[in-house]
Design a protein around this nucleic acid. Sequence first.
DNA 1: TTTTATGCAAAGTATTTGCACGGGA
DNA 2: TCCCGTGCAAATACTTTGCATAAAA
Lengths: 152, 152
Amino acid sequence: MATNRTETWLRKLKENGYRLTASRKAVMEVITSSQFVLSPLQVYELARKRYQKLGLVTVYRTIDKLVELNLIQRVHQPSGCQGFVPASMGHQHLLICTECGIVSYFSGENESINPLVKNVENSSGYSIKSHWFQLFGICSDCQIPQKTDSTI
Amino acid sequence: MATNRTETWLRKLKENGYRLTASRKAVMEVITSSQFVLSPLQVYELARKRYQKLGLVTVYRTIDKLVELNLIQRVHQPSGCQGFVPASMGHQHLLICTECGIVSYFSGENESINPLVKNVENSSGYSIKSHWFQLFGICSDCQIPQKTDSTI
DNA sequence: TTTTATGCAAAGTATTTGCACGGGA
DNA sequence: TCCCGTGCAAATACTTTGCATAAAA
């Protein structure tokens, strides 16, 4: 079942002259509907449940396109950076649970980050183009000892 | 020539029961004396100028040890995360020039980041364990059009 | 002398490319 | 029909492991 987000994505693909194929649909639906960081291999395994003939290579190629269209983003973590999540709308930052891997977004530009960036810009002489800000922690569900595992 | 930092590193290696070898010295001196993010392969190439017999495998193994001893840290960038720089003392953040790759450090905890982290912690219910904050921009040297390239 | 560290070769992973076929538009 | 997209196989990184030798302590 395609979510609203998938619809949007499919439209955006079309707008950019890409074809709508079963493979792409399967890959998009998997990433769209996941709250967790997924590696290409995980995407492949999950998407094959929706479209048996899918190949891993196509997953890589589709991921490239989705990144290019700014529909998904690569997530960097201490454990590696081969994971992807849907791109947040506007500029948002990631909050990642190191227990279950669930990802949420937050923003905090004006109040805190922008002034700091300005400070650094002034004192360093750099022209600052972008920033990364990510938080790692334990989500409320994972703080309850009994419930540590998760499904995608 | 060994810098002061290299001396410190060699001492720390010794303290932790590791042997001081020509290979390790070469690797450490290269990373210590570079202002730039270096990949294992780059470290290998540079360190071989100091110690011809060095093997790439030893570079990987030495990097592991240096990370473990908290003497170097992995740097995450949009282009990938196989680079390393000396670990900053205390908790600092990275400012990376996307033109020449030079890395510098800044701090900005109390004034801005801590309150934001607290906010997110309260509103999300997460127990936040760590954060990443990195800035990307163009350093003052690279802002002068004539001088864009760099050497390591 | 003892034991760690090294370098080489080989084995794993992860990702990309070449190419003929299949399926969207 | 036309041509993009696909899957397979192979190629290419990148990194780790096994093992006999070299070298630090």
